[in-house]
């Protein structure tokens, strides 16, 4: 359980400004969604928390530790940040079976064999993959691969779990079930989550807090009911309506 703090984040490639001025506090155990049309900068913000992108200015902290602050030349590389991430493409390693995929973060951190086996068994049952440990990824369905990715992100008990449009490659029915499952697992673990999506149903049904973004700016943030009842402008009203 951890907090995440963005302070005046900017991001640009040469002349192209991606993020203008992004500040946000995320509480312990909070489920926050970044919602917006494609190209609004939501994925970039998420990837900056993991260290896969670097901010050009401002600072990012996880708990009280600054993980990125270019002015003070602070940058903690991704492998030292202890955050979990679930990718849109699943990113399940095709040359490892389910068990090895999920166990990898523990192996890298040097856990002993019996501890690895225990923790993998526990997480496998939580994501409902028991019995599939020896399967290779190409023998899994998309939904199952997504569960492997989720288990791999959770197994090392990360400070924060980052989810980058994790459900967009699944069919509608499966997506609905996964929404409930992810939210339940998040609450059971009490883990802080940042969830990137362009699907407002996902954002509204799963989140404690929604951050609506457009063109690299935060347009509005608040609880789902706040936003639904008081959209700040036409863009927000339109965006949360269009997909119904």
């Amino acid at each position: 359980m951890s907090t995440v703090t963005f302070k005046n984040i900017k991001k640009s490639y040469d002349d192209l400004v991606i993020i203008k001025d992004f500040s946000l506090d995320i509480d312990n155990g909070e489920f926050v969604s970044f919602l917006g049309p494609s190209g609004c900068g939501k994925t970039t913000c998420l990837r900056m928390v993991s260290g896969l992108e670097t901010n050009t200015a401002g600072s990012i902290s996880i708990d009280d530790d600054v993980v990125s602050d270019p002015q003070n030349k602070i940058f903690v590389p991704p492998e030292k940040r202890h955050v979990g991430m679930v990718f849109q493409s699943y990113a399940v390693w095709p040359h490892m079976n389910v068990f090895d995929n999920i166990a990898y973060p523990l192996k890298v951190k040097g856990y002993n064999k019996s501890e690895i086996a225990d923790r993998v068994r526990e997480i496998v049952s939580i994501v409902e993959l028991t019995g599939l440990e020896k399967r290779m990824p190409d023998a899994l369905s998309g939904g199952q691969q997504q569960r492997v990715a989720l288990a791999r992100g959770l197994v090392m008990k990360p400070k924060v779990l980052l989810l980058d449009e994790p459900l967009s490659n699944l069919d509608a029915k499966l997506r609905e079930k996964m929404r409930g499952d992810i939210r339940k697992i998040q609450q059971d673990f009490g883990i802080t989550c940042i969830y990137v999506t362009h699907d407002q149903i996902e954002a509204f049904t799963m989140s404690d807090k929604i951050v609506i973004m457009n063109h690299g700016d935060i347009i509005q943030m608040g609880s789902p009911s706040d936003i639904r009842n008081n959209p700040i402008n036409d863009f927000v009203a339109d965006f949360i309506k269009t997909q119904h």
Binding site: S50, S89, W93, V108
Partner: peptide, 13 residues
């Protein structure tokens, strides 16, 4: 797919 490697970085490698 770059996320295959990114996932490993985030696993601590």
């Amino acid at each position: 797919d770059p996320s295959l490697e990114e996932a490993a970085r985030l696993s601590g490698a």
